[in-house]
Simulated scan of single mutants.
Amino acid sequence: MTDGAPELTWTAEPTPRWDADKAAAFSPAGPTVHGLGTPDEGDALGDAWWRVETADGEVAGFGRLDDTWGDAEVLVAVVPAFRQRGVGAWAMDRLAEEAAARSLNYVYNVVPVAHPDREAVTAWLGVQNFDTRETGELRRRVTTRAATTAPSQ
């Protein structure tokens, strides 16, 4: 990354569990707002999760992908100290790549009504190329590398 943003790594969590780093990334909204219930330290989490870390191993955030029926619900949570530094956009792009690798069509998100920054998060998703649907769902088309690098005829 450039422009003062940290260098980041994207690491799959083979057995994702709730921990203090996730709790920090989900503050102040908390996990309940995002449909994760009220997990305790060490509780197993469903879906596919990735940890975003800086080059020196500091946790900067998380990405979650829940794929069903050709699409994937995605969620990005960034540790407060790393917000407004491009970490969320970087993680969202990684989630789109993960969805493309699974041959999915769209990634989507619905910002919960109870989210304390609902309008700001919805606007941010718009900047990340998500289109708003009448249902309140925000969708972003996923393109595979093959589709973007195929020669034109």
Score class of each variant (00 low, 15 high):
Ala96Arg: 05
Thr2Lys: 06
Arg85Gln: 08
Arg94Cys: 00
Gly30Ala: 04
Thr149Gly: 14
Asn129Ser: 15
Arg85Gly: 02
Glu134Val: 12
Val79Ala: 14
His115Gln: 03
Thr132Met: 13
Leu45Cys: 10
Arg145Lys: 06
Ala44Thr: 15
Asp131Val: 15
Arg145Ser: 08
Asp71Glu: 10
Met1Asn: 11
Thr11Glu: 08
Asp21Cys: 14
Ala150Lys: 15
Arg140Thr: 09
Glu98His: 03
Gly4His: 02
Val107Ile: 01
Leu36Pro: 04
Phe130Met: 10
Glu98Gly: 03
Val110Gly: 00
Leu125Glu: 05
Arg140Ile: 00
Ala81Phe: 14
Ala23Leu: 15
Asp117His: 13
Ala100Trp: 05
Ala147Phe: 05
Thr148His: 15
Asp40Cys: 05
Glu53Met: 04
Asp93Arg: 13
Gln153Leu: 14
Glu119Lys: 13
Thr143His: 12
Ala48Leu: 13
Trp69Val: 13
Gly70Arg: 09
Asp93Glu: 12
Ala123Trp: 02
Pro151Lys: 04
Leu65Trp: 03
Leu138Phe: 07
Ala123Thr: 12
Arg85Met: 02
Ala44Arg: 14
Val33Met: 02
Glu13His: 05
Val33Asn: 00
Asp56Asn: 14
Val87His: 06
Trp18Gly: 09
Thr135Asn: 13
Gln84Val: 07
Asp56Lys: 12
Val87Lys: 11
Asn129His: 12
Ala89Arg: 15
Asp19His: 13
Pro28Thr: 11
Thr148Cys: 12
Ala150Asp: 15
Leu36Ala: 03
Ala100Phe: 08
Thr11Val: 05
Thr32Met: 02
Ala5Asp: 06
Asp40Asn: 14
Ala150Asn: 14
